[in-house]
Design a protein around this nucleic acid. Structure first.
Lengths: 128, 128
DNA sequence: CCGCATCCCAAACGATACTG
DNA sequence: CAGTATCGTTTGGGATGCGG
């Protein structure tokens, strides 16, 4: 297959992105955003505007340092989170949502908020 | 602590459910809904109304039999999916969203749809 | 205070084979 | 067709210690 055809195939896939396709790049982003700690980090930053590492760790109940650092790196890699390290002693690093991240976080909030609001219904359904 | 106080504490937690708290039951539901295959199964059923096991397997690209069966059981346990087995040979089992599951799936669609629509921006951000 | 590196265990996952 | 059982591999994720 020619490079031009390769490029066209890539653009076609990118244009009609489909999470149901196993090899669509949108799957990867979806994994990151819906990952165990990814959702909670996005929610914490949506509520808190800009937070330090330790503040995030306190707000996201149960997360370990390792997982928080790793999650932040992944989301930063996707352009959803911005990281700003002040060069001081002791270290001081701020995290915030990018505009892109804020849009994603709002959708996550819609889902998480619905779950919180409907938890009684969900627990009742679970019992049955 | 008295049983009455215990019960009150439980109700308080249930009433103001908070996914940021490590021990909130809403966390469990969030995990299920945002799990790797959970999101895709919900999306497939939202688009397809009612689907058989093998149809779901075909629509959710890359899922194994094992994981699909397990995911369906979990979501059924949460009351988000209904399962109806016709007693015939060969077997015939239909899956569909419950009203509760449809509400959740719509929120998942909002998120997944945003990712699909903004994939070019996301891939560009990733490159930088 | 931040977060990287290492080690290690447990859970998740996929492939295959098998059953009603 | 719709699963279950078993196995082996991969990944997730906690604990600890170190460096900036």
């Amino acid at each position: 297959m020619s490079p031009a055809a390769d490029a066209q195939a890539f653009l076609d896939r990118a244009q009609r992105a489909n999470v149901m396709a196993a090899d669509c790049p949108s799957r990867v982003v979806l994994q990151h955003v819906t990952s165990r700690w990814g959702t909670l980090v996005l929610l914490a930053l949506l509520a808190g505007r800009t937070l330090r590492f330790s503040e995030l760790r306190r707000r996201v109940g149960g997360v370990s340092e390792r997982m928080l650092a790793q999650t932040l790196q992944v989301l930063e890699g996707d352009g959803l989170i911005s990281r700003h390290a002040h060069q001081v002693v002791p270290p001081h690093v701020d995290y915030a949502l990018t505009p892109l991240g804020a849009e994603a976080a709002e959708r996550v909030l819609a889902l998480a908020g619905w779950i919180e609001a409907n938890l009684p219904r969900l627990l009742q359904a679970r019992a049955a």
